[in-house]
Design a protein around this nucleic acid. Structure first.
Lengths: 210, 210
DNA sequence: ATATAATGTTACCATGTGGTAACATGACGT
DNA sequence: ACGTCATGTTACCACATGGTAACATTATAT
């Protein structure tokens, strides 16, 4: 066999992903990862300081939330300063976030694990998600003006979309909405739009920089 | 020692609750439960057919969602048929559900487990929650008339309140809202009220029974 | 080319897990 | 009173887990 630390490190990291994807987070363990990677488990301790370190490195490496949402601010900068345009951008952003979570089972598995298990890794991951989400939120908020508590409304909507995505893997129906049926999903999108449409706000005046 | 099957069954069930409450769901196991109960683990197999059976029985016994919400329909029946009154009842119902979930850590731990782990027990429990929630929803819907997709809106709001309750044990802030701060919670309640206030609907006409 | 340190393997240990067999003891009907 | 069956305990097994020591091998710098 060839000897190459970086390569085997990546092999181990990838194996973590495969196991989580295939059998869920509970299937992860030093023995399982090492065996499936075809490598000695002691390397996990040597290179990552243990299982916790390995998982931490893996989560960090594939920090989906942070990566996938990279260019929202740029897109928003191109949107004209009209209420309807910004409103639509906001609705689109929510929809896009939701549907990307819907499309990636691994990310849902990850999020479920972050919520269920309390440990430094999941804590840090949740903080990162919050930080990134906050940036996106603010990029919208700095362009509009309102008496409404948009942060609170958005927290509810984001939380709702997360929750419904997470349990869609477990149950077929929630509050009478068929979660796996495209029509059910469309109803939820429409409901979100309708809520967002009813929030009154105006465009914030442009300020000179001085 | 005295010999009494019912008593030791209850002892085992209670012990499950204590362990979950103290150390979370991951701490549960045949050995742990038996030891903490001060009883032989083989009784778990004899009386419950194994750990799964024990947990299932425990979940069933303390089906919080079903129990605690018993009298919502009765209360609603006393509410006069005016839009504002029913609207307020609905807002109160949401608030009450949310705050009771906030007040009971065990229930949150339970819900987290239902979502994270996929097995017959959690599946059934989620179904029960859905069934019960549906009853409450319908008791409202049958008294009002609207073009809005109230089920979808409610699914979002309920999901949102669940999600925020669950991660409040893990992070301090979500989308800029301080979840453990009473003022943060009040903002969320207000946002929910505001959303519900904007849904247009009218009272459904009373029908004779024939 | 060869010493040396990094990389990797094998084999093992202690511990904890779910699960069962064999035995002890108490409750209860007759 | 006493036999009998449900109830309970002790002791054990097989297995998987995290973790480590001792050894083998390859890369690489000099």
């Amino acid at each position: 066999m060839e000897k190459n630390r970086k390569a085997t490190e990546n092999l181990l990291l990838d194996t973590v992903g495969k196991i989580v994807e295939g059998n869920g987070f509970s299937a992860i363990g030093v023995n399982a990862v090492a065996e499936q990677a075809g490598v000695s488990k002691i390397l996990i301790y040597r290179y990552f300081g243990g299982l916790q370190g390995l998982i931490g490195a893996w989560v960090l490496k594939n920090n989906y939330w942070v990566e996938d949402t990279k260019d929202w601010e740029e897109d928003l900068a191109l949107v004209p300063s009209e209420v309807s345009a910004i409103r639509n951008a906001m609705k689109e952003m929510f929809r896009a976030q939701w549907s990307s979570l819907k499309a990636e089972p691994l990310r849902r598995e990850l999020l479920r694990w972050f919520i269920a298990e309390e440990n430094p890794v999941s804590r840090k991951a949740l903080e990162q998600i919050e930080t990134r989400g906050r940036e996106i939120s603010l990029s919208f908020l700095e362009r509009i003006e309102t008496t409404e508590d948009i942060d609170a409304v958005n927290a509810l909507l984001i939380g709702g979309s997360y929750y419904l995505s997470l349990i869609a893997d477990r149950v077929d129906v929630f509050n009478g909405i068929p979660l796996s049926d495209p029509r059910g999903q469309e109803r939820l999108y429409a409901a979100m739009d309708s809520i967002l449409d009813r929030i009154p706000y105006t465009i914030k005046e442009e300020k000179d920089e001085n």
